[in-house]
Design a binder for these strands. Structure first.
Length: 592
RNA sequence: GCGCUCGUAGCUCAGCUGGAUAGAGCAUCGGACUUCGAAUCCGAGGGUCGGGAGUUCGAAUCUCUCCGAGCGCGCCA
């Protein structure tokens, strides 16, 4: 937010000041891009450290430590900085004035739920595509990681100032939706009282198609029975897809996941506006398409392999390993051909930043789509494909058995019903997206430190427990968060000077930085880990009050310190709620 | 065979896009409940960051090369 005070992001604020000093020292032309200000690993090194002198020494023609000392001299006059010391190979360690931390808390209280918001997105348009599960049945548990990841990433990007569109690509054009239609037609006959026996191999056997059959009866009676397949298939297919998408949207709603755009693959080839054909023409005009044959694949013998001439996209010219076919032998487009047109459509809708969230089994597909995007946008758009790895579903450490019979998979809804939306969402995000994840149905509902979902939510609830207790002493402490923050903002915050309290304040100051780093890396898991750390420090301070009564939040004969500490608790609660909201996890006021 | 991803404490994982002595949880061992809910906290031990080479002031992080695991590999989506 352009109008916000720069003090909201303490690290950015100090970096600006360091930059100014470096420019004064080296001249305005100096390249400051590698200069960073970051929290040192070792707290004895101060509050922040900068590598400025080491990065700039070569350009300045000076020894790093000498340059560091020159920069430090100037920094010492800064009104935020208490001391600046040169250390190690040329680090400048900064200790901030104690008043900075009270000011930070005032900022947290004043900004409320917008504390941590960033402007790095500069209102740029970003398209995040996620889920995109085939509309052939309800969502199963394998879908949920990408769904949660994409949704949280989108929220994170919004919080970081991007203009985000959440998109779902409906694969409603391939052979699998014809199979869906035939499967639904069987259920239609069944609903008309015909005996259909076992579902033949190759069709979808799940009971979830029974309502589709019943709906078809309600709409058509027995009229479809007399038609040839070519007669009924389009209508049955359309109805089945529509009903499957409704089911999927319901499953997603159970996880609080929504999309702005549902984009139909079929719509790309609609008569009169065949965007696949147009895209192929476009590429052909650029010379990126040719007729030729490919060497046989190496993975193993392919049945009915036939060397034939086909229409190929010159993917190798854009970094892929092999050129890719666009048209099948029956004349229809390959999935890839549609996908190129789809991504080109995103570009034409004005998106220059594209994010696709895919499952691990699509990893081999990344290079060709990246190549296609380069070709189709002349390198003007960037695509970041986030691959989410497999989820291993466990119960008490034992793998959850899935039946071999297809159609009998573990549905996403079953998992959400068993452990709750919050546990699913948090655990899906409490791991890097490209690492395999164990999801234990028994552990995620445990109420213990072992369970990070609980641990973080409990931190939030504990804060509210303090407020409830405090009302005996301060009856007019407001219930509503914003009013409470305002009520506490004028407390004597400089009395928060215990090391544990200062640690917590430093952690709060880190939040905007964490948001920006997570957003630019497209890594929402960093928020989850940050929240765990914040909750941990809060729990620690809480427990210290038991051994050291003077550290308790509520001190009966000292209203001033009590109010200051309640302000600290409010800051913690506020940031916990903010981070949890980005992840789409509830922040309860009490645990039941 | 090729491509992508991963390899960090006994186990499960972080490591802030190259920073200082690599951190948590679990497990093991030892402590703290007449409290602001101990649903928690404090402490100890435990590491050739898969091996090797390179890039530079500086590498778990970047490059190369081996080893090992997972995923994928013309007209499936």
């Amino acid at each position: 937010m352009a109008g916000k005070p720069s003090t909201q992001h303490l690290f950015a604020n100090v970096l600006t000041r360091v930059h100014a000093v470096c420019a004064a020292e080296l001249g305005a032309g100096a390249d400051l891009s590698r200069v960073v200000v970051e929290p040192p690993k070792d707290p004895s090194h101060g509050d922040m450290a900068t590598n400025a002198a080491m990065v700039l020494a070569k350009e300045a023609g000076k020894k790093p430590r000498d340059l560091a000392e020159q920069i430090a001299v100037r920094l010492r006059t800064d009104d935020l900085i208490a001391s600046a010391d040169v250390a190690g190979p040329g680090f400048i360690n900064l200790t901030l004035k104690v008043s900075v931390w009270a000011d930070t808390l005032r900022t947290v209280l004043g900004e409320g739920h917008s504390y941590g918001q960033s402007a790095i997105g500069a209102a740029e348009k970003v398209n995040v595509e996620y889920v995109s599960a085939n509309p052939t049945g309800p969502m199963h548990v394998g879908h949920c990681r990408g769904a949660v990841f994409g949704d949280a990433l989108a929220s994170l990007l919004v919080f970081a100032g991007y203009d985000v569109s959440r998109e779902y690509y409906i694969n409603d054009a391939g052979a699998q939706v014809d199979v869906l239609a035939r499967s639904a037609f069987l259920r239609y006959r069944e609903a008309l009282g015909q005996s259909i026996g076992d579902i033949p191999e190759g069709l979808y056997p799940g009971d979830y198609l029974k309502p589709v059959g019943e709906t078809l009866v309600a709409e058509y009676g027995d009229k479809l029975l007399t038609m040839p397949e070519a007669g009924w298939l389009p209508a049955v297919r359309a109805k089945a897809i529509a009903m499957m998408m409704e089911a999927i949207k319901g499953d997603l709603a159970a996880l609080n996941i929504r999309h702005d755009v549902f984009f139909s693959e079929r719509s790309l080839i609609e008569t009169g506006n065949n965007r696949v054909a147009r895209t192929i023409d476009f590429l052909r005009a650029k010379g990126d398409i040719y007729e030729g044959s490919l060497p046989p694949p190496k993975g193993g013998p392919i049945e009915d392999y036939e060397d034939r001439e086909q229409t190929l996209f010159r993917a190798t010219a854009f970094g892929d390993d092999v050129d890719r076919p666009l048209i099948k032998s029956d004349g229809s487009y390959t999935y890839f051909a549609s996908d190129i047109a789809y991504h080109r459509d995103k570009f034409e809708r004005g998106f220059r930043n594209l994010v696709d969230v895919w499952g691990a089994d699509h990893g081999g597909y990344v290079k060709r789509v990246e190549a296609a995007i380069k070709a189709v946008t002349s390198g003007k758009a960037t695509l970041d494909v986030k691959i989410v790895q497999l989820v291993k579903l466990l119960r008490n450490g034992e793998p959850v058995k899935m039946s071999k019979r297809s159609g009998d998979f573990v549905t996403l809804r079953e998992v959400v019903d068993e452990v709750g939306k919050d546990a699913v969402r948090f655990m899906m995000l409490y791991r890097k997206n490209d690492a395999v994840l164990d999801f234990d149905l028994a552990k995620v509902i445990e109420q213990s430190r072992e369970n990070p979902v609980f641990y973080v939510q409990y931190g939030h609830a504990r804060g509210h427990s303090v407020f409830r207790n405090a009302r005996e002493m301060i009856p007019d402490l407001p219930e509503e968060a914003g009013a409470r923050a305002a009520f506490l903002a004028d407390a004597a915050l400089e009395r928060l000077n215990d090391p544990a309290e200062l640690d917590l304040l430093r952690r709060l100051a880190l939040y905007p930085r964490t948001i920006e780093a997570a957003a630019s890396a497209h890594e929402p898991h960093r928020i989850a880990f940050y929240l765990y750390d914040l909750a941990s420090e809060f729990h620690a301070l809480w427990t210290r009050g038991r051994d050291l009564p003077y550290l308790r939040f509520i001190i009966n004969n000292d209203a001033e310190i009590t109010k200051a500490r309640l302000a600290l608790v409010q800051g913690v609660v506020s940031v916990l709620a903010s981070g949890l909201a980005v992840l789409g996890v509830d922040a309860p006021d009490e645990m039941r």
